[in-house]
Computed example of a mutant assay.
Amino acid sequence: MAKLFGLARIGRDAELRYTTGQDAVCSISLAFTWGKKGADGKRSTQWVDGALWGKRAEALAPYLLKGTLIAVTLDEVHIETYQGKNGESTKLSGKVLDIELAGSPSAAPAPTQQPAPRPAARQAAAPAQNFADMDDDIPF
């Protein structure tokens, strides 16, 4: 099967839904830019639909917001045919194997779910000697 990997921007906020068997599936629309810049100074864009499944879909959905830059690997990439407004159209689709947040959207709205409150900071008598003693500010 074909694989696709690279940097992409998310085209719309992720949509989390559940199958009849209660399996979580998160749909994301990805915009990959490719080729040389044209006369207008922009590169061509290839849109690809991706799907995350299971617990990863539930955990990542609040952070997959429109405009976010991600590094993504898609597996089982294939062409789907569908009936659009102007007749029959095609699109690329695939299953997300690996995903990493690489940047934030330009106007970052707050996620719909509130992150868990952080525990109170510890009062250290001496400066931290290793990185294990430091608090993480990473929300995921």
Rank of each mutant, 00 (worst) to 15 (best):
M1T: 07
A2C: 11
K3P: 02
L4N: 02
L4G: 01
G6Y: 06
A8M: 06
R12E: 06
E15Q: 11
E15L: 15
Y18L: 02
Y18R: 04
T19C: 06
G21N: 07
Q22E: 13
D23K: 14
V25A: 02
V25D: 02
V25M: 06
C26M: 03
S27L: 10
S27Q: 08
S27G: 06
S27K: 08
S27E: 09
I28D: 13
I28S: 12
L30Y: 09
W34R: 12
K37Y: 10
A39P: 02
K42R: 15
R43W: 05
T45R: 06
D49R: 09
G50L: 06
A51R: 14
W53R: 03
K55N: 09
A57S: 13
A59E: 14
A59C: 13
L60V: 14
Y63I: 10
K66V: 09
T68C: 08
V72A: 09
T73S: 13
D75K: 11
E76L: 12
E76F: 13
V77A: 10
H78T: 12
T81Y: 02
T81M: 06
Y82T: 11
G84T: 07
S89L: 15
L92R: 03
L92W: 11
G94W: 09
V96Q: 01
I99D: 04
E100R: 07
E100T: 04
L101I: 15
A102G: 00
G103N: 06
G103E: 05
S104F: 12
P111F: 00
T112I: 00
Q114T: 02
P117D: 04
P117F: 04
R118E: 14
R122Q: 04
A126C: 03
A126I: 14
P127Q: 07
A128I: 00
A132M: 07
D133Q: 13
D133L: 09
D137L: 04
P139H: 07
F140P: 05
